Computed example of a mutant assay.
Amino acid sequence: MRMPTRPRNDVRQYDDLAGEWWRPDGRFAMLAWIAAARGRLVPPAPRPGAILVDLGCGGGLLAPAVAGKGYRHVGVDLVRSALEQARAHGVTPVRADVTRLPLADGCADVVSAGELLEHVTDRPGTVAEVCRILRPGGLVVIDTLADTALCRFLAISVAERMPGGAPRGIHDPDLFVDPAVLTAEFARHGVALRTRGLRPQVRGLLRWLVTRRGTAPMVPTWSKTVLYQGVGRRLE
């Protein structure tokens, strides 16, 4: 089926691709691998009734990685079709803009912002909301794309032209995020963010590209020039 032509970073693309969220051989397969890596950074719930707020939750790909850790998993997204799938995987859905969250100050023990910050046009406002809803001592976990020439080449010129790769136009490279800038933005809100690079395991990625089977586990790397993770705690 021919997909509609959309502007870059148009949220309607996720409705067009609604059937891809949970396909292990689909266009969002790498998002599932990244979500699994993000979930490994989330510790068991620190208290009964703990809340994990999953910003830009999409179809709920983080859910398997945090199942059994004791959180109420709240997912925030703008895309109704994605939220319906997230609900089916145990996520409490909230349709909202991440710069104007309908959530109370300090309500979240963990805030996840996975593959989100390279899509928002108001990054400072988004970071401010992440920190506002995070309780003192709470944990934030993020992953995003770096504002580098190498990342733009790989994410746009390569991945979007690769058969079965990233959907064409899913990213706007002007929104990619410098890790030093992001660290400084979180620091202004009392969150000390530590970052590290992330990449797919080469053997697993090559196998998946050839067979569209299995997964390519994401592994840490010293380089933050393409994809990177961040972890931080809000000061008590």
Rank of each mutant, 00 (worst) to 15 (best):
R2I: 15
M3V: 12
M3R: 15
P4Y: 10
T5I: 14
R6L: 09
P7I: 05
R8W: 06
V11R: 15
R12Q: 14
G19I: 07
R23N: 13
R23W: 01
G26T: 01
A29D: 13
M30S: 15
W33G: 07
I34D: 08
I34M: 12
G39T: 04
R40V: 07
R47S: 14
P48G: 08
D54F: 02
D54K: 01
L55M: 02
A63G: 07
P64G: 03
P64S: 05
V66I: 01
G68V: 06
K69H: 05
H73E: 07
H73D: 07
H73I: 08
V74I: 09
G75A: 14
R80P: 12
G90K: 01
T99G: 06
T99K: 11
R100A: 12
L101E: 03
L101N: 02
L101K: 09
P102E: 13
A104H: 13
A104G: 12
C107M: 14
C107N: 11
D109H: 10
V111N: 00
A113M: 11
A113C: 06
G114R: 08
E115H: 01
L116W: 05
T121A: 15
D122Y: 00
G125V: 01
G125S: 02
G125H: 01
V127F: 04
V127A: 00
V130N: 01
C131D: 04
L134F: 10
L134N: 11
I142E: 03
I142N: 00
D143S: 05
L145A: 11
L150F: 08
C151Q: 10
I156F: 03
S157H: 06
P163A: 03
P163S: 01
P163W: 02
A166D: 13
G169W: 00
P173D: 08
P173N: 11
F176Q: 02
D178R: 09
D178P: 01
V181T: 13
V181D: 14
A184G: 10
A184V: 02
V191A: 05
A192M: 08
L193D: 03
L198K: 13
R199N: 11
V202D: 13
G204H: 09
L209K: 14
R212K: 09
R213D: 10
R213E: 15
T215K: 13
A216P: 00
M218F: 08
P220L: 03
T221F: 09
S223N: 13
T225A: 15
V226H: 06
L227D: 12
G230T: 03
G232M: 06
R233H: 13
R234Y: 08
L235P: 14
